[in-house]
Design a protein around this nucleic acid. Structure first.
Length: 614
RNA sequence: GCCGGUGUAGCUCAGUGGUAGAGCAGCUGUUUCGUAAACAGCAGGCCGAGGGUUCGAAUCCCCCCGCCGGCUCCA
C-alpha cells in the first residue's frame, strides 16, 4: 500500500489548468530542454489548439470554449451547429494532420484586454473568459490562420505535437455548470511517439477485460438488472465474498473498540429534516405514511445513530462511544450517474459513528487511521490518493467549529505521514472530511474510505454528555467508513485483483479435478476432507476431459486445482496446480489441507502470476 | 438530470424493408482421458417496451426504459 498525492492533471480536470494562475512567458524555449512531463503537457496543449483549428475550419460558425491538456491527452469544448457523430472525428483528425504536416510556427504574445475583446468579438465564450481575467493583458497564441486566448505552454511548432488519436466525443457543460449550455467535448489521446500511443490504446482495450461489470458476470458474482437499476443482485459466490469482507471488518471491531448496532430502514422523515439531509437531498426514497407523517428509507446511518445516542444519558466516562453498522442504505441517485457496482442506489457500508469529547479527537482520529492502514494493508490495495475536503458554500454549524475540525484533520493526516491534496469546498455539508481514493481499471478515481469530523450534527440533535463538572457538554461526532460502500469497494477490488482473490476471500478456494469418472469417488473424498477443515471446495465431476476442467477453473480464477487420478487415489494424495499455472506436484492430502488452511488464515495472497491467463 | 452512442438466444456478435442466424455456454448421448477447449445430436428468441408508416418492420419514424462513454451531482 502506498499513499500518494493525486496527479495534478487528471481526466477532465481543467480546474488544474486554471490554477496555474501565472501567465507563462517561456514558450520560445526548445521542447527538448524542458522536463519530459512538461514536454507532454506542451504537446497535448498544442494538439488541443490544432484540434480547435481543424474544427473551426470545418465548422466556420463554431464557437470554441476551452481546451486543456489532460492526463492521457487533451480535449476541446465547442458549441457547434449540429451534433458530431463518431464519423466526424475522422474528418477532423485528417484536418489536424494537415496542420501538423504544415508545421506552422506557434507564436504567443501578451495583448491588452481591449484588443483581445476586439479579436474575439464573435466568440462569446472567449469574451466571458477575458472578462474574468484580472490582469490588464491576456495571452494570445496563434499558428497558421488560427488564434486562441491562451495562457501558454506550447511547443514551438505544430509539427512537434507527437502522436495522437481522437477517441470520443461527449457532452460537457460550459464552465462545468449544469445551468449553462451543453457543449460538445472532443477527446484525444496523445503521446510522444506512435508506439507509446499504441501501447496506451492497447492497455485501455485490455482494461475492459478487467471491468468489474464483465468479471462480475463471468465469475458468477453479481449482476445488474433493469428491474431495479443500480441495485445489484449478488449471486452465491458474490454474496460469499461480500460476507467475508463484512466478517473481516467485524472481526476487527473488538480490537478497535466498536460496538455494532442495528437501526431501522424506515424513518419518519423528520429525522432527516433535523439532520439537514432532507433539504439538501429532497429526492430521497419516500413512502406513504399516516396522516401528516412522511416515511423515508434511510440513505445514511448518522441520524439513526444520533437518535440511538440520545436514547440514554451519557457520562464523559462512557466516551468515546463507537457505533458500527452494516445495514443497507438506499439513495435515489440520478440515472446518469449509475455505474456498475461503483455507483449504486442500494448498498451498505462498513459505517461507524464515534462520539467523543473534543479532547479525545486527535487520539480517535489516529485510531481510525491505524485501522485504515491495517485494512488496506491486509487487502493489498495499491496506490491510495488522500484528499482533505474543506468547507464549501452550503454548510451547517458555525465557521469557528469548522476551522477547528479542518485544522485537526489536516494535522492528523500530516502526522500519519500521508501526502494529501486539498479539495477546497468539497466537504460534506456538515463536516470536513479525509477521503481515501482508489482507481479502477480505466483510471477513474473512486472514494472508498472517509473520515469526517462533525461538530454540527450533535448540535442539531441536541446530543450531550455529562462532564466531570456535572454539567452537560456537546460531544464531537466522527463519521467514518474504511471500505466505504461495500459494493463500490468490491467493484474496485475486482478490477484491482482482476478477479484473482486471495484465498481467504475466494468464493471457491479449490476445485478437485478427477481425471476419469472412476476417480470421482476419491475426488469427493478429498473434497469432504478439505471441507471438514472449513475450506470451500468443489468437485468438477462433469463429463469433460481434464484439460477442459482445468481451463474452466482457470477462467474462474480458482486459486487451486487438485488433480486426482490413479496415482493420487492410491497414495491418498493430490496433484496441485495453482492459478498462476504452476504445477506444484503431488502432495499428501493432509499436507495440502494444512497449506490451504495456513494460507487462508494468514490472509496472504498468491503471487499474482498469470501465465496464459485470459 | 444533461449530451452522444447503443439494445437481436444465458454470453459475444452477424443480419438495413420480404420465412431470425453463428460461436461459446446449456441439455442428451458417445468417449474415460494426466495439467487451458473430445465428438455427435438437441433445444434455446413478443429482435428492450409501447405507438406509427407499409401489402409486409429486427430493419424506417415517434416516444419511453435500460446499458455504455462523458458532464453535472455524490449525504
Amino acid at each position: 500500500m502506498a499513499f500518494r498525492r493525486p496527479p495534478r492533471i487528471g481526466a477532465g480536470e481543467e480546474r488544474a489548468m486554471n490554477e496555474q494562475a501565472e501567465p507563462r512567458r517561456d514558450d520560445d524555449v526548445a521542447l527538448e530542454t524542458v522536463p519530459r512531463e512538461e514536454q507532454l503537457f506542451r504537446m497535448r496543449h498544442s494538439a488541443a489548439h490544432v484540434l480547435a483549428e481543424a474544427v473551426l475550419d470545418l465548422f466556420p460558425e463554431a464557437k470554441y470554449a476551452i481546451g486543456p491538456p489532460i492526463e492521457h491527452g487533451f480535449y476541446y469544448d465547442f458549441d457547434l451547429p449540429r451534433t458530431l457523430t463518431p464519423n466526424d472525428l475522422e474528418g477532423i483528425e485528417a484536418r489536424m494532420r494537415e496542420s501538423v504536416a504544415a508545421d506552422h510556427p506557434i507564436h504567443g504574445e501578451w495583448i491588452p484586454k481591449a484588443r483581445a475583446r476586439e479579436l474575439f468579438r464573435d466568440q462569446p465564450y472567449k469574451l466571458e473568459l477575458i472578462d474574468e481575467i484580472e490582469e490588464p493583458t491576456v495571452g494570445h497564441f496563434q499558428h497558421g490562420g488560427f488564434h486562441d486566448l491562451c495562457r501558454g505552454g506550447h511547443t514551438q511548432r505544430t509539427g512537434q505535437v507527437g502522436s495522437f488519436k481522437l477517441t470520443h466525443v461527449a457532452g460537457a457543460y460550459w464552465r462545468g455548470d449544469e445551468r449553462r449550455p451543453m457543449l460538445q467535448r472532443i477527446y484525444g489521446a496523445l503521446f510522444r511517439t506512435e508506439p507509446e500511443l499504441a501501447a496506451y490504446l492497447k492497455a485501455r482495450e485490455q482494461a475492459e477485460r478487467r471491468d468489474h461489470r464483465r468479471l462480475g458476470r463471468e465469475l458468477g458474482l453479481f449482476h445488474l438488472d433493469p428491474i431495479s437499476p443500480g441495485s445489484p443482485f449478488f449471486h452465491p459466490r458474490g454474496a460469499l465474498l461480500y460476507n467475508e469482507l463484512v466478517d473481516y471488518v467485524r472481526g476487527l471491531y473488538p480490537k478497535y473498540g466498536y460496538q455494532e448496532v442495528i437501526t431501522p430502514q424506515l424513518f419518519n422523515t423528520d429525522i432527516f429534516r433535523t439532520s439537514g439531509h432532507y433539504d439538501l437531498f429532497p429526492d430521497m426514497y419516500k413512502m406513504g405514511g399516516e396522516e401528516d407523517e412522511e416515511i423515508g428509507i434511510k440513505p445514511m446511518n448518522c441520524p439513526g445513530h444520533c437518535w440511538l445516542y440520545r436514547a440514554a444519558l451519557h457520562s464523559y466516562r462512557d466516551l468515546p462511544i463507537r457505533y458500527a453498522e452494516f445495514t443497507r442504505l438506499h439513495r435515489n441517485e440520478r440515472s446518469g450517474v449509475l455505474h456498475g457496482l461503483t455507483r449504486v442506489r442500494s448498498f451498505s457500508q462498513d459505517d461507524a459513528h464515534i462520539y467523543c469529547t473534543p479532547e479525545q479527537m486527535p487520539e480517535e482520529i489516529e485510531r481510525v487511521f491505524a485501522m485504515v492502514r491495517e485494512i488496506y494493508g491486509d487487502l493489498g490495495l495499491g496506490e491510495v490518493d488522500v484528499k482533505v475536503a474543506t468547507r464549501g458554500e452550503h454548510f451547517i454549524g458555525n465557521p469557528e467549529d469548522w476551522d477547528v475540525a479542518e485544522r485537526t484533520l489536516q494535522d492528523e493526516v500530516r502526522r500519519a505521514g500521508w501526502d494529501y491534496a486539498l479539495a477546497p469546498g468539497e466537504a460534506a455539508f456538515y463536516a470536513p472530511k479525509v477521503e481515501f481514493h482508489f482507481r479502477d481499471a480505466l483510471g477513474r478515481s473512486w472514494q472508498l474510505g472517509t473520515l469526517q469530523i462533525d461538530m454540527a450534527m450533535p448540535d442539531r440533535f441536541g446530543l450531550e454528555y455529562i462532564g466531570a463538572d456535572g454539567e452537560p457538554h456537546r460531544p464531537v461526532m466522527m463519521h467514518r467508513a474504511i471500505l466505504g460502500s461495500l459494493e463500490r469497494f468490491l467493484g474496485v477490488y475486482v478490477e484491482h485483483t482482476e478477479g484473482r482473490f486471495p484465498l481467504w476471500l475466494a468464493p471457491v478456494q479449490a476445485v478437485v479435478i478427477p481425471i476419469a469418472d472412476r476417480h470421482n469417488d476419491y475426488a469427493w473424498h478429498v473434497a469432504r476432507e478439505l471441507r471438514g477443515r472449513g475450506l470451500r471446495v468443489e468437485v468438477d465431476d462433469s463429463n469433460e476431459r481434464m484439460g477442459n476442467k482445468i481451463r474452466r477453473a482457470q477462467l474462474q480464477r480458482l486459486p487451486y486445482m487438485l488433480v486426482v487420478g490413479d496415482r493420487e487415489a492410491e497414495a491418498e494424495a493430490v496433484s496441485v496446480r495453482d492459478r498462476s499455472g504452476d504445477d506444484l506436484g503431488a502432495m499428501p492430502l493432509f499436507q495440502i489441507a494444512d497449506r490451504l488452511v495456513d494460507e487462508r488464515d494468514s490472509r496472504t495472497s498468491q503471487a499474482p502470476g498469470s501465465a496464459g491467463d485470459v
